[in-house]
Computed example of a mutant assay.
Amino acid sequence: MKDNDLDVITFLLRQHEEIRTLFQEMDHVSGPAREEVFQRLVRTLSVHETAEEELVHPYARRAFAGGDKVVDARLREENAAKELLSRLDEMGTDHPEFPKLFEELRTDVLAHAEAEEREEFPKLKEETGEGKLRAMTTAVKAIEAMAPTHPHPGVESAKKNILMGPAAAIMDRTRDAIRAAMGKTGS
């Protein structure tokens, strides 16, 4: 089944599995490969959370009773994870504090994903028609294509993402291109 045929819940659940896999991969790599896997994790988490913040969470607020409470809790978790991910991204995988902080990130992110899967996604699926859920997948993919590729703590609302996201995305994608070019030239 292609991503375009998936409802947004299934699409996001697949991304959660990808994130879990990247965390597991980190246990089995070292050196430059560890940094490469970590940067894939940073990018995956960053674009995934942006899409949830811009589309999924605002929709959930309105879709079911208690949506505000559920979404507010998820946004607090996302901000804490972004702050930690940002610190880890800045320090690099060979920093002496990285392993301890990375384990804290893993615990927080996986608990956050489980909370979404338990509290938010089932209610969204119950209260939203299949056609709307598939349309949301298309929108999530569009948001992710333009999303920042690194964490930006404090930008958890849809409004802040829309206002600040494009500039952050350009800066992030430029930084990614420079890093890639530097790696290829050996500089």
Rank of each mutant, 00 (worst) to 15 (best):
H16K: 11
T44M: 10
I9K: 01
A111F: 15
A169W: 04
L124E: 12
L105A: 13
T21R: 11
R106T: 15
E35D: 15
K184W: 04
R62L: 14
V29N: 07
V71E: 00
T10S: 07
L105E: 13
A168N: 15
M171W: 15
A147T: 10
E78A: 10
D68E: 14
D176M: 05
E103Y: 06
A51S: 15
K82P: 00
D89N: 10
F64I: 13
H16I: 12
A113G: 04
K100V: 08
E49D: 07
D89T: 14
A168F: 09
A177W: 09
E35F: 08
D176A: 10
R43H: 07
E114K: 05
L105Q: 13
T107N: 03
P153Q: 03
L84N: 06
R34F: 00
V42N: 02
R40W: 12
D89A: 15
F102E: 11
A60R: 03
A111K: 12
Q15W: 01
P153E: 07
K160V: 14
T137N: 02
A113F: 08
M146D: 14
K123P: 08
A73P: 01
R74V: 06
R173S: 08
M146C: 08
A145I: 06
L163N: 08
A111Q: 15
L124W: 07
T185R: 06
F98G: 10
S157W: 11
Y59N: 08
K123V: 11
R118Q: 13
H152D: 02
V56C: 10
P32M: 03
A147M: 12
R61W: 03
A81D: 14
T174D: 09
E104W: 03
